[in-house]
């Protein structure tokens, strides 16, 4: 659900570190559900930009006024809530960032929220699913493709 609206259209920017080096890119994302969830359930993204995949290990997530955290840290936020109204920022490590112009982004969010106990529960504790397999994305089962233009009016910060 909210298929075409999960990434804010003007939010694709390059990320610049404290020394001024372009270290990656970012975009703003919403919860692909009709509700918020405890942040720990948030299991990362399938992100492919112009044909290049950026696995979860290259991603961090910024929410609730905190500095970006990787998904090992996010999994430990068992009492912090990601409210339905709030936008989070997905940061992706890519030295040099993205080139100017339009980019094709294939996107799927994985959140391990479901309807009660499921046969996959124990497995997902041991081996959380890799985002993009459809697992943990029951409200937006298909990978969604966005065509976004890099917003160069301001740099993102990490």
């Amino acid at each position: 659900m909210f298929d075409n609206f999960l990434i804010r259209k003007d939010s694709l920017k390059n990320d610049v570190d404290a020394k001024g080096a372009v270290v990656g890119f970012q975009f703003a994302a919403r919860n692909a559900n009709y509700r918020g969830v405890y942040l720990s359930l948030h299991n990362g993204y399938y992100i492919r930009v112009d044909g290049v995949e950026y696995p979860r290990e290259f991603q961090t997530f910024e929410i609730n006024g905190r500095a970006p955290r990787d998904f090992t840290q996010i999994a430990k936020c068992v009492w912090e809530h990601w409210d339905f109204d709030d936008e989070g920022i997905v940061h992706v490590r890519k030295p040099g960032g993205l080139a100017s112009g339009e980019h094709t982004i294939d996107f799927q969010q994985s959140v391990l929220a479901a309807y009660g106990y499921l046969p996959t529960d124990e497995e997902w504790v041991k081996n959380p699913p890799v985002p993009g397999s459809g697992a943990g994305s029951d409200k937006t089962k298909n990978i969604v493709t966005y065509h976004l233009t890099l917003n160069e009016s301001e740099a993102g910060r990490v």
Binding site: V37, Y38, S40, K76, G116, D121, E122
Partner: peptide, 12 residues
């Protein structure tokens, strides 16, 4: 209300 059973992530 909801009750996501994987909230704690290290166990069901």
């Amino acid at each position: 209300v909801f009750g996501d059973v994987l909230q704690f992530r290290d166990h069901v």
